[in-house]
């Protein structure tokens, strides 16, 4: 036997864990909801105007939870202020860019929502354009902050921001469909959102699922034909420890099943679309879990 057996080593923690995965999911859902909100006021698709307010309020609420998670996740919570002080701010740190985005995005979004509420098309569109750039950038950053760590082979891929943005788009729509469904049950009949609109959103979600599957396939090929670490990451982490969030939660529950619902006559049933939306929103969280924790897992033995 030529190979050695490791008999002693010290162990290490996974530095970023559940809190960060929840944060990634929340930012994604927020960005996705906001994209839908902007359809009416920024891109001029008038039939989406009625749901703009609900969508942007959902996006704001999702994002409001983020600083709570992130600040209390710090070892020294009060020192989050350092992230914004000129003498401390570090231009090369991805987290520095993220801080700027996470603080500016909700402000822009609140102003946009105000103008939507006031029915002011000019300012809603102007601020909406800025907000949508910030929304996409904020979620782009969540992919980048993990990507720019060359030592984390599972995260170090240029697909990361795209995977995150696609996940954001589908989970945001999924969550919004659920919220609109609940809203329709509560509000008066005249204020209800037309079901055809929700069906159309589900159709967009289906396109997102196809693109997501394509990206996951690319990532799968890279890990399968990759370096020793990447192959091991795939075998041990994704198909081993994180098999449930990766294979079952993301692929099966969050991708294959909702896709099946949305391409078969099941989509004609209200329950079918609601179920697909729920599964997509939950399934994307599976991706957040393996992406954050799985990428760091193998190295904790090293």
């Amino acid at each position: 036997m030529d190979e050695s057996t490791i008999t002693y080593n010290v162990f290490h923690h996974v530095a970023w864990g559940t809190t960060i995965s929840v944060y990634f999911w929340l930012v994604g859902a927020s960005a996705g909801s906001f994209v839908i909100s902007s359809f009416g006021w920024v891109f001029g698709i008038k039939r989406y105007k009625p749901l703009a307010l609900t969508a942007s309020i959902t996006a704001i609420f999702m994002l409001m939870l983020v600083p709570i998670l992130l600040i209390w996740d710090l070892g020294k919570p009060l020192r989050f202020l350092y992230l914004m002080l000129p003498g401390y701010w570090h231009a090369t740190g991805p987290m520095s860019w993220g801080t700027a985005l996470i603080f500016s995005y909700p402000i822009a979004m609140i102003i946009y929502t105000y103008f939507v509420f006031k029915n002011n098309p000019f300012w809603a569109k102007t601020i909406g354009i800025i907000s949508i750039i910030l929304a996409l950038s904020t979620h782009w950053y969540t992919g980048v902050v993990m990507e720019l760590n060359p030592g984390r082979f599972l995260n170090h891929t240029a697909l990361a921001p795209l995977l995150f943005l696609t996940g954001a788009f589908i989970s945001g729509i999924g969550l919004l469909i659920l919220i609109l469904w609940v809203q329709n049950m509560i509000v008066a009949i005249k204020n209800r959102i037309e079901w055809t609109l929700i069906e159309e959103m589900a159709q967009y979600m289906m396109y997102g699922l196809v693109f997501d599957a394509f990206l996951l396939f690319l990532d799968f090929m890279q890990t399968l034909y990759g370096s020793n670490s990447e192959v091991m990451g795939h075998e041990v982490v994704l198909m081993g420890i994180f098999r449930f969030p990766y294979l079952w939660l993301e692929m099966v529950i969050g991708l294959i099943v909702p896709f099946f619902i949305l391409v078969t006559p099941l989509k004609k049933f209200k329950a079918g679309i609601i179920l697909a939306a729920l599964l997509v929103a939950v399934g994307v969280y599976g991706m957040r879990v393996w992406w954050v924790m799985g990428g760091q897992y193998l190295q904790t033995f090293y």
Binding site: H13, L74, K76, R79, P94, M146, R152, Q299, Y302
Partner: peptide
Amino acid sequence: NRCIGCRTCMVACPYNARHL
């Protein structure tokens, strides 16, 4: 005195050389 405990450096370090 500058560290906020965000653990970015721990994630970035390829050698597990840092700890909280």
